[in-house]
Structure formats: structure tokens, C-alpha cells
């Protein structure tokens, strides 16, 4: 009973701030009010008319999409190599490729800024992209690694035996079986890139900005319900992504045996 109470309170604690943000975005007042006073969608209209927000949103979406695709191109061969081969330095390679998951992003960002400054890779879209590829690749790699099984190896042999080339085998036999994992890892990667501040903040400018960095700068100086409206839209995007993943791979992994 006590456990139930603690658990439900904790769940409420997890949801509360998101509910507050959505609530605030609907208020009619010009200041942040929760519970909202009156209901209006006018703050959404305000941000949709603001070209800076639109531009940042497009930058973020484009950045996340490109970073995710690049991460797949990097992670897929790495995963195949790590599951199908034994080679010296394999565990070191795996440690390096997965380390951005736990290393401070602010340090990675600083390092890229300092290094990028020497080769002109700074405060432009490619600079942003490179950093995001580094931090999202481990997400794709981590979902891919357990998907390459021993059974698949003999299925690939069977496919070759039946007359398919190595490439057709990859597309006809291997890829269909890892597709769901690749897509869900991709969604994780997309979201991770889409909500990143610590890395992007080093390379954004007033004209090249991502949504979270713009929110971050904005929130530090002034706040009004339009911020809440932008935030609500990102919550909505996250909810859609989660439902997609749930639909693809199922999220009931906490079910007991």
C-alpha cells in the first residue's frame, strides 16, 4: 500500500511539470499563470507567426534528421563488424563509440568548438551536424547490437546458397529483420538531437539557431506564455515519437516473467 502511494506520487511528480507547461500555454493572461486563466490558443498563433521560431524549428528538424541518417550510416557497419567479427581492439572500439552516452556533452561541445576553430568548422550547420552525429550514434548502435543474432548468420548463408549476392542478402534477409530496431534507434537518436542544448549552444548564432537553444536563451531573460506554447509543441512531438516506438517495438519491457 505504501509502495503504491509512493509510486503514484512519483508518477504524478513526473507528469506534473509537463501538465503545467501545457496548462500555461493555454492561458489568456500575458504572464505565466497556472492553473490557466481562461482558455485560448492565441499563444500558438503568436509563435506560428514568428519567423525566428519557424526557422529554428526547421533547423532543429533538419539537423536531427541528417544527424540520425548519418548515425545510421556510421552505426550499421560498426554493429555488423562488432557482432560478426573478432578483431583486436574490438572492446576499445565499442567503448569509444558508446562513450558519448555518459561523457559530459558540454565537454564534447567545447572540444569540437576548440578543434573546429582550427579548421573553420565553427558556428555553421556542418559544425552542428558533426557534433550531433557523435552524440546520437551510440543510441543507434546500442539498439542495433543485440539485433544481430547467430541465427541470422546461417540465414544469410542460406540466402547466398539460394543464389543471392552479398548485397541482395543484406537487403532481402538482414535488413528486414533489424528494420524495427533501426527505426526505433533512429527515433531515439532524432529526439536526442532535437532536444539537445549542451552541444548546440557552442555553435549556434542569432541566425542559425535550434529550438531548444533559442528557448534556453529566451527563458533566461524573459518569460511569457509563448514559451510554454513552443514547449507544448515539443512535448506533443515527443508523445508522437513514443507512440511510434511503442507501435514498432512495444514498450511493455517491464512485464515480469
Amino acid at each position: 500500500m505504501i509502495i503504491r502511494l509512493i509510486a503514484l506520487t512519483t508518477l504524478a511528480y513526473l507528469v506534473l511539470p509537463l501538465v503545467v507547461v501545457i496548462g500555461v500555454s493555454l492561458t489568456e493572461t500575458k504572464f505565466l499563470a497556472f492553473p490557466p486563466q481562461g482558455l485560448t490558443l492565441s499563444w500558438y498563433a503568436v509563435i506560428l507567426e514568428n519567423p525566428t521560431y519557424i526557422r529554428s524549428f526547421l533547423t532543429s528538424a533538419g539537423l536531427a534528421a541528417l544527424a540520425t541518417m548519418a548515425a545510421m550510416l556510421v552505426a550499421l557497419p560498426a554493429a555488423i563488424a562488432m557482432t560478426r567479427y573478432t578483431f583486436p581492439g574490438k572492446s576499445a572500439l565499442s567503448a569509444v563509440l558508446l562513450s558519448p552516452l555518459v561523457l559530459p556533452h558540454i565537454v564534447i561541445g567545447a572540444a569540437l568548438l576548440q578543434f573546429g576553430a582550427s579548421i573553420g568548422l565553427v558556428r555553421n550547420f556542418p559544425a552542428l551536424l558533426v557534433g550531433h552525429v557523435i552524440i546520437v550514434t551510440p543510441f543507434v548502435l546500442r539498439t542495433l547490437l543485440p539485433l544481430f543474432s547467430h541465427d541470422q548468420l546461417s540465414q544469410e548463408e542460406a540466402s547466398r546458397d539460394l543464389g543471392a549476392s552479398a548485397w541482395s542478402t543484406f537487403f532481402l534477409v538482414t535488413l528486414p529483420q533489424i528494420k524495427a530496431g533501426l527505426v526505433s534507434g533512429g527515433i531515439f537518436a532524432f529526439i536526442t538531437s532535437f532536444i539537445n542544448v549542451e552541444l548546440s549552444i557552442f555553435n549556434t548564432t542569432s541566425t542559425l539557431n535550434t529550438i531548444p537553444v533559442q528557448l534556453f536563451n529566451y527563458v533566461q531573460y524573459s518569460v511569457d506564455p509563448s514559451i510554454a506554447a513552443v514547449s507544448s509543441l515539443t512535448i506533443l512531438a515527443a508523445a508522437i515519437a513514443i507512440i511510434l516506438i511503442d507501435w514498432l517495438i512495444g514498450l511493455d519491457f517491464l512485464s515480469g516473467s
Binding site: 541465427d151 546461417s154 540465414q155 548463408e157 542460406a158 546458397d161 539460394l162 549476392s165 552479398a166 534477409v173
Partner: peptide, 19 residues
Amino acid sequence: PPERRPLNTVFQNYALFPH
């Protein structure tokens, strides 16, 4: 390579394509 050889194989664990 295997795909160019005039033979076929029945694998021990069958290796049927599950999808």
C-alpha cells in the same frame, strides 16, 4: 562464392527466413 555454385544446402537449424 556460394551463390555461384550449382548446389544447395539444407542447414542444421534450417535457417528459414523468419520474416
